[in-house]
């Protein structure tokens, strides 16, 4: 088994699936690399999809999504023994 999220990544969750769809389009247009993933068990309270992105892209990631009106609900960082709010 190979983890799909490393400690160099961040995982953004959104309120709804429609927000994820819009965020994906915005990020692709901005050439920000991403991967759509199912939200890990225990993290999702709204939409069960999440967007993985490189931690060093965070400023651009948040700027693009805020400008488009779809800021992430929460962003997580993977720790050795779970997830923490980043």
């Amino acid at each position: 088994m190979i983890p799909v999220v490393s400690e160099a990544d961040l995982l953004a969750l959104f309120e709804t699936g429609h927000e994820v769809l819009k965020a994906e389009k915005v990020l692709k247009q901005a050439n920000i690399a991403l991967r759509l993933l199912p939200a890990p068990a225990g993290l999702a309270t709204g939409c069960a999809l999440a967007i993985r992105f490189a931690a060093d892209q965070r400023p651009a990631f948040e700027a693009e999504l805020s400008a488009a009106g779809v800021p992430p609900k929460i962003i997580y960082r993977k720790e050795q023994d779970g997830w923490s709010v980043a």
Partner: peptide
């Protein structure tokens, strides 16, 4: 539209299965 992002999420997770 939903089907496409579900497929992405699924395929992206396959290697963790």
């Amino acid at each position: 539209e939903l089907g496409k992002i579900l497929l992405q999420a699924c395929v992206n997770t396959l290697k963790e299965v």
